[in-house]
Design a binder for these strands. Structure first.
Length: 194
DNA sequence: AGAGCGATGGCCT
DNA sequence: GGCCATCGCTCTA
């Protein structure tokens, strides 16, 4: 059986964690039921990274990024979308990995009810997967090694990983800090990467 | 106290 | 491919 990724997994370099999370399973439990999916696309946000929410220092919104590793950083953006990150590095170092797409495994019907759609549209984007799995700001800071929102892994062995540039940012556009599983149909966008 | 804007997605063309 | 809804957070005054 897969076990929750241990705390020390998230202490590694953020670029390494971003790649290592590919193929791991994001698992979520609510009173409605369980949903889960394999992580197929990630982005790294690092210290000194102009595109990071932590670039201008600590605020109430981004405080979780400065917290201990292996916890969630969930933020709300564009007035309607939540995005989910796994916090990396030691406490005080504000780095994180944005989860951008999942390949659904459990609870597809529940995801469909939450999303009002099905198929690829369930989880092929950062705002979509949070809606499908009922992840919002109440989970900001949640421990990802136990509880109702856990990352297990790895779900499968080594696969081909594509390196690309990140999506939807205006600063540090050229940094190759997006990673996804080659050929996976759940990846949100395939262009980019220079 | 208020303006500006964003790690997006849905819908239209 | 383009438009734009929608609102919390940040910055400036």
């Amino acid at each position: 059986m897969m076990k929750p990724l241990p705390r020390h997994f998230y202490l590694a370099e953020t670029l390494t964690v971003a790649r290592s999370l590919l193929g791991c399973l994001l698992w979520r439990r609510t009173p409605e039921g369980v949903t889960s999916g394999i992580i197929v696309e990630t982005e790294a946000y690092c210290q000194g990274d102009a595109a990071s929410h932590a670039a201008r220092g600590r605020t109430p919104r981004n405080a979780s990024m400065f917290g201990p590793p292996g916890h969630a950083y969930v933020y709300f953006t564009y007035g309607m979308h939540h995005c989910f990150n796994a916090v990396t590095r030691a406490e005080g170092v504000a780095e994180a990995v944005l989860i951008r797409a999942l390949e659904p495994v459990e609870g597809l019907e529940l995801m469909g009810r939450r999303r009002g759609t099905d198929g690829r549209q369930l989880t092929n984007g950062p705002g979509r997967l949070t809606q499908a799995m009922a992840i919002d700001r109440t989970l900001d800071g949640a421990d990802l090694t136990e509880g109702d929102l856990v990352i297990h892994g790895p779900a499968a062995g080594a696969r081909d990983i594509v390196t690309a540039t990140r999506v939807g940012i205006t600063r540090a556009r050229d940094e190759p800090w997006r990673f996804y599983l080659a050929g996976n149909r759940w990846v949100s966008k395939r262009q980019g990467g220079g």
